[in-house]
Design a protein around this nucleic acid. Structure first.
Lengths: 203, 203
DNA sequence: CATAACAAAGCAATCGCTTGGTTAATTGTT
DNA sequence: AACAATTAACCAAGCGATTGCTTTGTTATG
């Protein structure tokens, strides 16, 4: 039943299947509550087979976090590509991030909260990936502050902002009364200082 | 080594010790990653002894959540007692909540995120305790909206707000560059629509 | 002497992970 | 083109450690 490999030296498909399934389970049940057997079953493997692709459960988490964040970053950069106005850039970042968080079936940004399960060395690598993810945000916030659109882009703002956005995954239910677009508008409205639930000017 | 109980029929002290230790460990390491032996060791007991006070590990979590939220609610109500201005009430709520979250050594509001470890019946009881905790918040937000101080007090606002506030426990470090008061001011400033990092008018 | 509050020991289940096959695809050789 | 050798990608089985929890015994107190 061995599957053909596409190219010698390239990653086979099943590794990515494992990463996606692991990310889903880690977000839904938590790292410690997810067994490697759960992950194997989710992709139709036997209990020991994931350890052919990953040396340990922690390595699976680390890979899911880093690769998930980096692919989310690609979507972020594509969303703000060519957009000059910093306010619009922020709205695009917020909307795209909520998409990564709530609509993408990996929901990778949520995995950062499982960093405590990693050892310091791995945690540092993950922190680096998260820094890359945060870079376009801070740049946009700085531009908004320079233009007088917000009062300050000092550290607490970005931290509070990510807490607010990431917290959505704890209560958001697809198909509920709130759409992702509505949440994105409400969050962006708060950040831009116009008071709660301000409509976005382009909708 | 049996300790005297204070009153027959009343709860002995060690039960509360267990609850405090369990809450700390559940917040720091997560419910699934915390063993009942960890909890026992934290209070100087042997591995099986906590099960004299609690029937199961889940019951320990449930009790820690409900009793922690209710004692935090007492502090909330005391902080806004006699305060008429809704803006000031919100500032007091924010500051007190961050105290419950970051300064109290139980940090009980964080435990809500471990609800997924409970069965639906227990989860409903915890949700009721959280509703009690949220009640003074929604009342204050409604008053602010009625006074035109914020644009709307519709559902996403409260949800985004708690996400923003509770998220602090993921990055806040006591003794760091940011004080709890500073964070509270920044968060309240965002909510009140004055833009980021607005100073509170009474400081 | 009865009870509250444990300690001591251990049990059954589950955990992450390893070991040793097995099979189909790929590669090398003639 | 034919055939052996190698390799990728698993499966089957299980090992040792850890888990939540139970059972029984102990001790101080009322």
């Amino acid at each position: 039943m061995a599957r053909p490999k596409v190219e010698p030296g390239l990653e086979p498909n099943r590794r990515r299947e494992l990463l996606r399934a692991a990310a889903r389970l880690f977000v839904d049940k938590g790292f410690a509550a997810t067994t490697t057997r759960d992950i194997a079953e989710a992709v139709g493997m036997r209990a020991g087979s994931p350890f052919y692709h990953f040396r340990s459960k922690q390595e699976l988490l680390k890979a899911a976090m880093i690769e998930g964040l980096d692919s989310g970053l690609v979507r972020l950069l594509a969303a703000v590509d060519g957009v000059a106005d910093p306010e619009m850039r922020l709205r695009r970042l917020v909307r795209t991030h909520l998409g990564n968080l709530l609509e993408d079936d990996c929901r990778s940004p949520m995995l950062i909260y499982e960093s405590r399960a990693l050892e310091p060395a791995d945690r540092a690598e993950v922190a680096a990936a998260f820094d890359r993810y945060q870079a376009p945000w801070q740049a946009t916030l700085d531009a908004l502050a320079a233009g007088g659109r917000i009062a300050s882009a000092a550290p607490p703002l970005r931290l509070l902002m990510f807490g607010m956005l990431n917290g959505c995954s704890h209560w958001f239910r697809p198909g509920g009364t709130l759409s992702v677009d509505q949440i994105a508008d409400a969050a962006a409205g708060l950040l831009l200082g116009g008071g709660a639930n301000q409509k976005s000017p382009d909708s």
